[in-house]
Amino acid sequence: MNRQKQPYVTMKGTKDGLTLHLDDMCSYDDLIAELDEKLMINENKDFDGPLVSVHLKLGNRYLTPEQEEELRALIRAKKNLVVASIDSNVMTKEEAIEWKQKTEIVSVAKIVRSGQVLHVHGDLLLIGDVNPGGTVIAGGNIFILGALRGIAHAGCYGNKEAVIAASVMKPMQLRISDVMNRAPDYKVDEQNEMECAYIDDNDQIVVDRLQLLMHLRPTLTRLERRF
């Protein structure tokens, strides 16, 4: 191995399996070639061993989905190895925008009227009402400063932790992730307390006092979330 000073691939055994640090300056083809070579040697060593998880650290290299698949295939082809994670410091602009959209709080000042749909990717802070026949949809949580009289769908991409809060909770329909609640099971008697809706341990949407949320969803406090 005299064609390089530093190896492109460095392996470290940890208690979680095998961590591979992949050089992020060399060409992709060189990287793949060396990885294949190194794994071959490795494979010969412990022939009949148990399954080993492989963690790939890409540094500042961006892999296209096709390249990622090629890498996984290459590793999968070696007897007892399986890719557990691929970690890169970089992402495409689109992914970054999507990430931003899904984690930001969008505030909108308007009345969502009958027939209108307001859809945001992150959390929604609505300064206004949702009238009967109007719909608000969010990838994250929904906070309504006015009255909710229409339909609200939080966590629309499958987040069951998402919540819906409103100053006046009189919805036609509540949805969180894929759980739906048409006739909310709370006291119908007039009350002017803020309320919130969340999915409980029985996979049911429950409506309760807003103040419970801080205990049920402590993560709401955090302004930035993990990717």
């Binding site: 009227r113 009958s114 027939g115 209108q116 009238n131 009967p132 026949g133 109007g134």
Partner: peptide, 12 residues
């Protein structure tokens, strides 16, 4: 009233 609400939304 529901239809009025819809119309107001369109007018806006």
């Amino acid at each position: 009233v529901r239809d009025a609400d819809r119309i107001i939304g369109l007018l806006e």
